[in-house]
Amino acid sequence: MKINFVINKHNVTVDVDPSMRLLDVIRNELHLTGTKEGCGEGSCGACTVLVDNIPYDSCLTPIANVIGKEVMTIEGIRESKEYNVIADAFAKMGGSQCGFCTPGMIIATYALLQSNPHPTDEEIKVALSGNLCRCTGYQGIINSVRLASQKGEKND
């Protein structure tokens, strides 16, 4: 079935089975490999993408569910000015180690700061609670989000 949606601000049509996972469409059909698969069951958040600006697990999303919608992956996010603030903060605070959870973490952070530019620590934790990281112990990630929020403030 031909399925139309928007990926990283570009219209795209893919001819796939409607039950195909959005993750597989992104990685295998569109060859955008920044989105990762860590568990395949919605437990780790490594496959997080934005669908109409809301973070989704792309491993649980049948492609039928994004017909006509706007999907943003890390390849799209990284073109934004907000990404630079977030990536710079992650670099300064040690928010990324092996890098496998990182695109998902950055998208979750991006979505959080879009809707809530100055989150409390509790709000940061809730927003990132579905994104597992095995390397950083999360402290570097929390500090990264805190710093990105502060930096964003200066840019307001």
Binding site: T33, I74, Y83, A91
Partner: peptide, 21 residues
């Protein structure tokens, strides 16, 4: 110092085994 692999990993440009085309 800035980690040498930071930029690629954050931007989703780092190529892991499953990403190799």
């Amino acid at each position: 110092v800035t980690k040498v692999d930071n930029a690629d990993k954050m931007a989703g440009k780092a190529i892991f085994t499953g990403d190799i085309q």
